[in-house]
């Protein structure tokens, strides 16, 4: 069970503001995390706590394919990203590296910055403990559930490689 405070942003949060290219000369998750969302909300990194949730509106993570974006969000301690919709590369990168993401426009509309959120990833239930309301995220297709259960694509590929050998 995930529990944390919501950090809320608008539409088209692009990967350049999530992790600007000037920091892409490293692949170290901890170092990348210190610059997470720097060009959108420079205060984010000082106010985020482990378990917190990012809430975005439409097309979250649009732009570059840089996996550094979900990596820095995960390494900053964020437990889940909820949005109306995700850009497709950010979506697959998040599943591939084991960063939970949920599509749920009702929850996005019903969550304000600072609300306390509880999420059951197994059922996709999102509870806003501040308002007392709860929401159901769109369920993942079976293959993606398997990816999530395995903890990401590396473990999936490992399993497949072993099975094929």
């Amino acid at each position: 069970m995930i529990k944390g405070r919501a950090h809320k942003y608008g539409s088209n949060v692009d990967t350049d503001v999530i992790i600007p290219a000037r920091y892409l000369n490293t692949t170290d998750p901890a170092e990348l995390a210190t610059h997470c969302l720097e060009d959108l909300d420079p205060a984010f990194i000082s106010k985020v706590h482990p378990g917190d949730v990012i809430v975005g509106e439409d097309n979250f993570g649009c732009g570059s394919s840089r996996e550094h974006a979900p990596i820095c969000i995960k390494a900053a301690g964020v437990s889940c990203v909820i949005a109306n919709s995700f850009a497709r590369i950010f979506y697959r990168n998040s599943l591939n590296i084991g960063l939970p993401i949920l599509e749920c426009p009702d929850a996005v509309a019903g969550i304000s910055a600072g609300d306390e959120i509880e999420i059951d990833l197994a059922t996709g239930r999102i509870a806003n403990l501040t308002t007392g309301k709860s929401y159901s995220a769109k369920p993942f297709p079976e293959f993606m559930r398997k990816l999530i259960e395995l903890g990401g694509l590396v473990n999936y590929a490992k399993t497949k490689l072993t099975a094929g050998a």
């Binding site: 394919s65 840089r66 996996e67 590369i89 697959r92 990168n93 591939n96 590296i97 990401g152 694509l153 590396v154 999936y156 590929a157 497949k160 490689l161």
Partner: peptide, 14 residues
Amino acid sequence: SGVGSTDMAAAMAL
């Protein structure tokens, strides 16, 4: 189509 680094890793392997 564009993908991420882990996709590239899995595709290089498989």
